[in-house]
C-alpha cells in the first residue's frame, strides 16, 4: 500500500516533469507527443524532457540511497553524501576542466568524476590511518576539511578564469539537468547498477552497522570490510551523480529522514522506498527549476538548498529537543 503510494507519486512527478518547462504542454499535447515521437510535441517529450526527467529520477534515487547508507555508516540521521568531501573534489575537477578549455562532450563529467573519486580516496586515506579501522565520525570531519581545501583551489582557479568560463563553471557547480541526454541516462544507469546493488544487497549489514561496531561484530558482521564496502559504494554513486548533474545537496538527507519516519528504519524496506521518493523529489525540484524563472532556468542545486537548508535546521533542532 505504502509502496503503491510512492510509485503513484513518482508517476505523477514524472508526468509533471514532462509537461512543464520553457514550452508548457497540455495533457493533450503530452499524450500526442508520447504517441508520436516525430511530431513537434514528440520531439520535446522524447528528445528533451524524458531523458531529463529520467536522469533526475536516477540521480535523485542514487543520492537518496547514498544518504541513507551513509547515515547508517556514521550512525547519524543527519549525515549527507556531500559530507564525504566528494562534492568539493568534483567541483574542482569540473572547474579545472572548464578553466583548461576542455570542452568535449564528456570532458567535464569525466573530470568531475575523477575529482570526486580522488577526493573520496584522500578522505578515506586520511581517516583510515590508524590501522585499517574506520571511525565514522573522523570520516565526516576529514570530509569537511578536504572539501574546504578543494574549495580553496576551485576559488583560485575561478579567480584566474575569464568571464564566460566563470559563468559556465558557476552554473555547473550549482547543478542542473539541462544537458541531460539519452546517452547520459544509459551511461549513468549502467554505472549505478553495481553500487546500488551492493547497498541494496547489503541492507542487513547497514542495519547492523547502525548499531555500532561492538554489537555489529557480536551479531556476525565483518565490520571493517562492511564499512569499506559502504564507503566505496556511496562515494562512487555520489561521484557519478555530481558528474552528470553538478552539486545537488540535501536530497540525500530529506528523503531518508521522511521515509524512515513513515516505514521504519529497517534498510531492506527503507532503501527501495528512499530510491523512489528521492528520485521523485528531484524530478519535482527539476520541474520547479524550469518554471519559476521561465524561460530561464534556476540551478537545481539552489532549489534543493533553499528547501533543504531550513528543513535541515528544523531537523537538527528537533533532534536536540
Amino acid at each position: 500500500m505504502k509502496f503503491a503510494a510512492l510509485a503513484a507519486g513518482a508517476v505523477a512527478a514524472m508526468i509533471l516533469g514532462l509537461a512543464v518547462g520553457a514550452t508548457a504542454l497540455t495533457p493533450a499535447d503530452l499524450l500526442a507527443g508520447l504517441l508520436d515521437p516525430g511530431g513537434r510535441a514528440g520531439i520535446i517529450v522524447w528528445d528533451l524532457r524524458l531523458p531529463r526527467v529520467l536522469l533526475a529520477f536516477l540521480v535523485g534515487g542514487s543520492l537518496g540511497v547514498s544518504g541513507a547508507a551513509l547515515q547508517a555508516l556514521v550512525r547519524n540521521p543527519l549525515a549527507e553524501p556531500y559530507l564525504l568531501g566528494i562534492s568539493g573534489g568534483a567541483g574542482l575537477g569540473a572547474v579545472a576542466a572548464i578553466a583548461l578549455g576542455l570542452t568535449g562532450l564528456a570532458a567535464i563529467p569525466l573530470a568531475a568524476f575523477a575529482g570526486a573519486v580522488a577526493s573520496a580516496a584522500v578522505v578515506y586515506g586520511v581517516a583510515a590511518v590508524q590501522g585499517s579501522r574506520l571511525e565514522p565520525r573522523v570520516l565526516v570531519l576529514v570530509g569537511v576539511v578536504v572539501a574546504a581545501f578543494c574549495g580553496a583551489i576551485t576559488t583560485a582557479l575561478l579567480t584566474m578564469s575569464e568571464a564566460a568560463q566563470l559563468r559556465n563553471a558557476f552554473l555547473w557547480l550549482m547543478g542542473g539537468f539541462g544537458a541531460a541526454s539519452w546517452p547520459a541516462v544509459a551511461v549513468f544507469s549502467g554505472y549505478a547498477v553495481l553500487p546500488l546493488g551492493a547497498l541494496l544487497g547489503g541492507a542487513r549489514a547497514l542495519d547492523l552497522l547502525s548499531l555500532g561496531d561492538e554489537p555489529a561484530h557480536a551479531l556476525g558482521l565483518e565490520t571493517e570490510s562492511a564499512k569499506r564496502l559502504v564507503f566505496v559504494a556511496t562515494a562512487l554513486l555520489t561521484a557519478a551523480s555530481v558528474a552528470v548533474s553538478g552539486m545537488i545537496g540535501f536530497v540525500g538527507l530529506v528523503a531518508p529522514h521522511a521515509i524512515r519516519g513513515w516505514l521504519g528504519p529497517l534498510h531492506r524496506r527503507l532503501l527501495p522506498a528512499v530510491f523512489v521518493a528521492s528520485g521523485s523529489l528531484l524530478m519535482l525540484a527539476d520541474a520547479l527549476a524550469r518554471t519559476v524563472m521561465r524561460p530561464a532556468e534556476l540551478p537545481i542545486g539552489a532549489i534543493t538548498a533553499l528547501i533543504g537548508v531550513p528543513l535541515f535546521a528544523f531537523l537538527v533542532r528537533r533532534s536536540l529537543a
Partner: peptide
C-alpha cells in the same frame, strides 16, 4: 548501546537472526 534510529522491539530481536 545507543541506536540512532527508532527500531521496533521485534526488529531489534530479529537482528539476532542475521
Amino acid at each position: 548501546e545507543e541506536y540512532p534510529f527508532a527500531w521496533r522491539v521485534a526488529e531489534v530481536v530479529g537482528f539476532g537472526r542475521y
